[in-house]
């Protein structure tokens, strides 16, 4: 199928994008085009017919990865492939790095962007869980300037976030997790590659123990969620498989199985089962990442 007609504008800067958003805020629908790998398929199948597309993928100030003190800052239009090639991301945001590796396929990773992923907020995307686990702050720009939104407050529901219609997500800031162990375990849908369940884990460690943990999941509920009971069970626990397994048993404690995602690929009940298994796999993979990097050192 083919997209319906629309007008296309390329934004040269954040201000330009905001102006374009403002200019086209009246009649019809306007969509921001980042990597386009969620939007264009929806447009081609006729599910989505925006009147105006504002292409923000080339905005320079929304590109790139930098480290400022203890903060890793990633431009929203940074492509997955650039994140994968970045030592800074691997070092400071190991859970995110692990999740990015599992997004889509090579072609998708060559085009898709971190900001597009998070702002689109597909419940089955791979990055919401990692953003939550990484304690990311999502920075938006709007007519009134900049707004910083903690990942915990960012995701509202399916495709719904705190980003307003006149705003755009410009930057993701992540407190450095240098030395922490991060991992992402995903059960992909065999057809779409989206996560039936994906669990991102970040363990702060001290010797053989976990000092604190952040665990986020996507694919399970209609938006990314923190698995606080798992985090609680891990805090001050031992860094061993047994602790991980028993903590993973709490993965679904705060979640209502009836409200879990249920679709062709997996029922909510099966997702509840997968959530526990993949939480355990994420946690043990985090431990393994520690031992392998230790070995590499």
């Amino acid at each position: 199928m083919y997209p319906d007609e629309f007008d296309y504008y390329r934004a040269e800067s954040v201000d330009d994008a905001l102006d374009l958003l403002d200019e086209h805020s009246g009649a019809g629908t306007t969509e921001l085009l980042a990597g386009g790998h969620s939007l264009l398929p929806a447009m081609k199948t006729g599910l989505s017919s925006p009147d105006v597309l504002i292409d923000i993928s080339g905005v320079e100030e929304m590109q790139g990865i930098s480290v400022d003190g203890d903060t890793l800052s990633i431009g929203a239009m940074t492509r997955y492939s650039d994140l994968l090639g970045s030592d800074a991301v691997a070092e400071h945001a190991p859970a995110l790095a692990a999740a990015v590796e599992q997004v889509g396929d090579v072609q998708v990773r060559n085009r898709g962007t971190i900001g597009g992923n998070l702002a689109h907020a597909d419940p089955a995307a791979d990055l919401p869980g990692a953003a939550l686990a990484s304690d990311a702050t999502l920075v938006t720009h709007g007519p009134d300037g900049e707004r910083e939104i903690p990942a915990d407050d960012f995701f509202f529901g399916m495709y719904t976030t705190d980003v307003g219609p006149d705003e755009l997500l410009t930057r993701i800031e992540i407190p450095s997790a240098d030395g922490a162990l991060g991992a992402y375990a995903k059960k992909p849908s065999p057809s779409s590659g989206y996560a039936m369940v994906g669990v991102a884990a970040l363990l702060e460690i001290d010797g053989d123990g976990v000092t604190s943990a952040r665990v986020g999941a996507n694919g399970v509920m209609d938006h990314g969620v923190r698995l606080s009971p798992v985090e609680d069970a891990l805090a001050d626990g031992a860094l061993d498989d047994e602790t991980m397994a028993s903590a993973a048993n709490h993965a679904g404690d705060d979640l209502d199985v009836d409200m879990m995602m249920s679709d062709l690929q997996a029922s909510n009940e099966f997702r509840a089962q997968l959530l526990e298994v993949y939480t355990e796999r994420a946690l043990t993979a985090a431990i393994e990442s520690g031992s392998s990097s230790a070995a590499a050192d």
């Binding site: 085009l33 386009g36 790998h37 398929p41 292409d55 072609q107 060559n110 085009r111």
Partner: peptide
């Protein structure tokens, strides 16, 4: 230089 799916890219992009 990068592999991309040309059906998921506008020509204008």
């Amino acid at each position: 230089g990068d592999a991309v799916k040309s059906c998921t890219l506008l020509a204008v992009q």
